[in-house]
Design a protein around this nucleic acid. Structure first.
Lengths: 135, 135
DNA sequence: CAAGATTGAAGCCTCAATCTTG
DNA sequence: CAAGATTGAGGCTTCAATCTTG
C-alpha cells in the first residue's frame, strides 16, 4: 500500500526531471509561490508547506536561485525573515512544466478512478493529514 | 493529496527510528526476508521489492550486516548472485520493532477508516501499483 | 532566551563504471 | 555480450551548531 505511493511519486519525479530538468520538489516550491497573491512566501512557511526542514529548503532555494527561478527578498516587518519570490523565468518554467506534470498525474493516477472515487480518496486523505498536523 | 502520504511515511519512519534505532527502509528489508520460507532472498529481488536501486540495496545491506541483522551468503546455483539472510538477531530486532510499527500504523492510519473503507483503499492502490509495474 | 535562516558534517540514495560469472 | 553485485562520485536531506534579530 505504501509501496504503491512510493513508486508513483518516484515515477512522477523522474518524468518531470526528464522532460524539464525540474525535480518534483522544485516544482512544488514554484507551485506554492505561484499560488500566493504576490508570489512570495517566507522561507519558514515555505519549508513546512513542502515538507522540508528549514536547512533543506535553504539549500533547495540556493539551487533555484542559482537557476534564476526564484529570488530572495528581505522582509520589512521582521529583519530576521527572508522571502522567496518567484521570478518571471520561474513562472515561465512552471507554466511549461505544468502540462507535463498534469498529464503524468492523470495517466498514472487519476485515470484509474471515477469522479466519485476521487472524491472519496480526497476525503480519506484529509483525515490522515488532519491527524499528522496535530502531532 | 500526495502530501498526506509523505507526512505519514515520515512520521512512521521517525517513530520506528526513535523507538528502535531502525529506519523504515531497514525494517522493510527484515520484513521481506522474514516473509520467505528460508528467510533469505537474492539481493536483486530484494532491491526491487523494497524499491531501491541495486547499489542502494548494497549499501543498506552493508549497514544491516555491520549491525548483525543480516548476513550475506553465496548462491550455489549461480555464482554471480548473493543472498541476504536474516540472522537470529535480525529476527529478534524485527519481532521487537513490529508491535511499535503496527501500533503506529494503526494510530496514524488504520484508525481513521472502517473495514469497508480499508478494503476500498487497498483495491484502489492495487490499480495504481499495477500501472506502475507495467512501465 | 526564542525564532528565522544559514552552514558544516554526515547519512542515504542514484548514476555510471567496473568486476565477475553465465 | 547480458546479468548480479559492488564501488566511486556526486546530489539531496537532515541534525546540530552558529549568527542575527525580536
Amino acid at each position: 500500500m505504501l509501496r504503491a505511493y512510493g513508486a508513483l511519486v518516484k515515477a512522477l519525479d523522474a518524468e518531470l526531471e526528464a522532460a524539464h530538468g525540474l525535480p518534483l520538489s522544485s516544482y512544488e516550491v514554484l507551485l506554492q509561490l505561484d499560488s500566493t497573491p504576490d508570489c512570495k512566501m517566507r522561507m519558514c512557511d515555505l519549508a513546512s508547506s513542502v515538507q522540508l526542514s528549514r536547512s533543506g529548503l535553504t539549500r533547495l532555494a540556493d539551487r533555484l536561485e542559482r537557476d534564476g527561478l526564484i529570488e530572495r527578498k528581505s522582509c520589512d516587518c521582521d529583519a530576521r525573515g527572508a522571502y522567496a519570490a518567484l521570478t518571471p523565468r520561474g513562472r515561465e518554467v512552471l507554466k511549461s512544466a505544468s502540462p507535463t506534470h498534469h498529464s503524468a498525474v492523470r495517466e498514472r493516477f487519476l485515470s484509474h478512478f471515477g469522479d466519485e472515487e476521487l472524491a472519496d480518496l480526497a476525503a480519506y486523505w484529509r483525515r490522515v493529514l488532519a491527524e499528522s498536523e496535530k502531532g
